[in-house]
Design a protein around this nucleic acid. Structure first.
Lengths: 349, 349
DNA sequence: ATATGTTGTGCAAACGATTGCATTCGTAAT
DNA sequence: ATTACGAATGCAATCGTTTGCACAACATAT
């Protein structure tokens, strides 16, 4: 049974204030005699004193907790983000509380509600997107907020993410350079920042190469592997199938791999594949996937730094940071020779 | 700016008690007139009232929070566990706070300290193991506790995990049945429950098959992929290398794959591989890995159920639950023909 | 002798919610 | 007229900390 300052005060014969000052007051403002200090400390230890952070938080109006909200903890990208954020926050003496929204906006709403009720000192959110009224509530509550992985241009909020458009450009341009022109895009959840910006990059790359966009090659509707599986099966059945697929996320790529395996489609011989996200296992897959890597550590460091800044100075100018993505070329893309390209076109007709 | 019960009381002209009862009291014990209820509710909404869980927790001596401690959030096994626990806890109206200990006992200690200071209502811990004094503190604080994934026989604490010995037996027996006898084991962190029990199963399987245990084939010292990589390189260099490797965890297996790829060792042709843990991506690897699957969902459901039981009745008999592992046979194990087997034995002598 | 400091400690008011125990008023039963 | 009761609400203590201010005791300077 945990004892309180009062218990210790009674046992030592000093006041609660004195005990509090000995045990928690780091300022040297109050000079407590060494004798008293000794006594209080030893009694505290003996009685197994443990501070009550609820009482402290209530009194101080500060909890040293940061709320973190992500769409899917089990997604390797986000579990890496969480791990990285945790380390950064710990350095600054903050704890954190994570919520997993399952890419569901209503869960996100209730997560924010809970965190505000807990009086967290700050919030880092990888929002589902789509809708933003609940985000505004955070602003109204004057809780420092940084958005991560998703930067909405139209929201006046600090945010840091990778340059998704550029990432998609890198991926698709790579495919084009290797001779592909029928390139499919398997999307994630439409309406989300990550998806829309990657789609934009995809389209832009095709435009710049003067390849006509075929809407039949833009498919899919969420970031999970089942989506990748089903849409790949669908794409393979088209009368004029793509020679390459660009997937919007790592799990989608896994689903695509499974579909190919089942259909006896060999990557990269029969079909090339590039994906956004580059979790630890991509290089061990069969084949090792060519992928767009995000600078996760840097992203998290910046998010935390921006949050701290905002906590210190609430009316500093807001910033939106875009980090550079990187293309990791591995073995999932085949060079389409002019000949095979022609063969392919011939087959098509 | 969040308002308080007092603010609302003042604005409506009723007492704080009444406001509290209208807004939070689910018992119908106090009959508040419909008129008052209406008024209070509308003012509360208008003023953006948000309950302060610190104050409530302090008063009620109950926080509706469960602390969860795992060794590595980024490990797919644990991120799946967290996701699953989160869902289960949410159903019961509990929130949770996760700590990642990085398999470091001192971080585990401070995590427990923090969680007790936060006055969580219960704790679910996947302990690093090795040492237990800090676990006893939880007992002393009379906080309900369930250990997950790690069941220490000598601790009188509720726990649920997979039957690691049996899992290892399944894995190694499978290798033996396919004709292997020089089977290496790449360990995780020595001294941890997961590691010791898996090692035990490994040894038992060899014993039962009357294969002499070669200590040179038992290597490694943590659950990360680098360990798998380095130890595989080492094993491949032995004058009499193993024909099969059993790895203690998924990340170790990834490292092993990388080492093999670098050395041009083909799996399963040149070397067979079985691993403990079976995350979503194992079947997409090259080759798809034969692996021991743990019933994660069930494990988490049981852990939460046991915790709830313990929270209701603190002196109920304690239980230790062992769940059944499952062997998923894929393509990473080759059958060693009698001939090659004999050749091999000859080589040994 | 008076003023001025310094040192060490305690008082009491917050922080925001909950709840057992009044209290007030009206109505119905005896 | 007295009693009893139910409905609707308020009082005040409590949960455990923090901290501005006050104060006592003593030392030093003028």
């Amino acid at each position: 049974m945990s004892s309180t300052l009062k218990d210790i005060a009674q046992k030592t014969g000093v006041s609660v204030s004195t005990v509090s000052r000995v045990l928690h007051d780091n300022t040297k403002k109050y000079k407590i005699s060494d004798e008293t200090q000794e006594k209080v400390k030893s009694v505290a230890k003996e009685m197994g004193y443990r501070i009550n952070t609820l009482a402290r938080g209530l009194r101080l109006q500060k909890t040293f907790e940061i709320g973190v909200i992500v769409p899917d903890i089990a997604n390797p990208f986000f579990s890496a983000v969480i791990k990285s954020l945790a380390g950064e926050l710990r350095k600054g003496g903050y704890n954190f509380i994570v919520y997993d929204t399952d890419e569901d906006i209503s869960i996100e709403r209730s997560a924010i509600k809970s965190l505000l009720e807990k009086r967290v000192d700050g919030l880092i959110i990888a929002s589902v997107g789509q809708e933003f009224s609940h985000i505004h509530k955070v602003r109204e509550a004057k809780i420092p907020l940084v958005m991560i992985d998703r930067c909405f241009d139209f929201l006046d909020i600090d945010s840091v993410s990778v340059d998704n458009v550029k990432g998609a450009l890198l991926a698709v341009n790579h495919l084009i350079k290797e001779g592909h022109s029928r390139i499919a895009f398997i999307q994630g959840l439409p309406g989300t920042y990550a998806n829309e910006t990657r789609l934009q990059g995809y389209k832009q790359a095709l435009d710049e190469a003067e390849i006509k966009i075929d809407e039949h090659l833009i498919v899919g509707d969420d970031f999970r592997s089942l989506n990748g599986y089903l849409e790949t099966k669908h794409l393979l059945k088209l009368t004029s199938p793509p020679t390459a697929i660009f997937t919007a996320g790592d799990l989608i790529a896994l689903g695509a791999l499974e579909a190919c395996r089942e259909n006896g489609v060999s990557i990269p011989k029969d079909l090339s594949l590039v994906t956004f996200d580059d979790p630890v296992f991509t290089s061990y897959l069969s084949p090792a996937l060519t992928a767009i890597e995000q600078p996760i550590t840097k992203m998290c460091e910046m998010a935390v730094a921006m949050l701290y800044r905002r906590m210190r100075n609430s009316d500093d100018e807001r910033r939106k940071v875009l980090l550079e993505p990187k293309l990791n070329v591995r073995n999932s893309v085949a060079r389409l020779s002019a000949l095979s390209n022609i063969t392919h076109i011939t087959k098509k007709q």
